[in-house]
Design a protein around this nucleic acid. Sequence first.
DNA 1: AAGAAGATTCGCT
DNA 2: GCGAATCTTCTTA
Length: 183
Amino acid sequence: MELARYLVGKIAVHDTDGGRLSGRIVETEAYPVGDSAGHAFRGETPRNASLFLARGHAYVRFTYGSSFLFNVTSEAAGVGAGVLLRALEPLEGIDLMQRFRGGARLLDLARGPGRLAEAMQIDFRQDGIDLCAPGPLWLATSRLKTGVIGESVRIGLTRNVDRKLRFYERGNSFVSGPRRLRE
DNA sequence: AAGAAGATTCGCT
DNA sequence: GCGAATCTTCTTA
């Protein structure tokens, strides 16, 4: 949960064969230990194994038949908790992202977790890699100033809906969700 | 082995 | 703004 707040304003970078893709994280959601909405809630399975890695690893999940979800693990090894990256403000490789996203408008390139993963070319190949170690995919701090961070309930869940575990940069147009959840 | 649910997206009204 | 599409993964028989 602290990590979720910390990640807002940081930069996600992915070096692909086609070039570098990067974007500023503007929206996250925390899925802490014991959260019944979290993918780790029912214990470790082959698919969520990387969620039980130490803090700072990637956990990639496929859902709803067409979307990848990109998470960062948040706890010690064996615990099982993470932070979902829900939206990015594209910085580098925007032309590439537009190609992957079928020519979507700049605003819609990475506004939403599934879109973000598609724009950043995140899939199972990135599952389980260490985001703090040198490699094709990592997280970086930014010189850019981070705005005021707001918090709200999480989006799109059917369980544990009431907890305020979503963090976002207030007023940023690249944040997903209805307007009242962006201000 | 089959069924149900899901951290979504897109298109149409 | 609403409803359908889509398929992976877990649960239950």
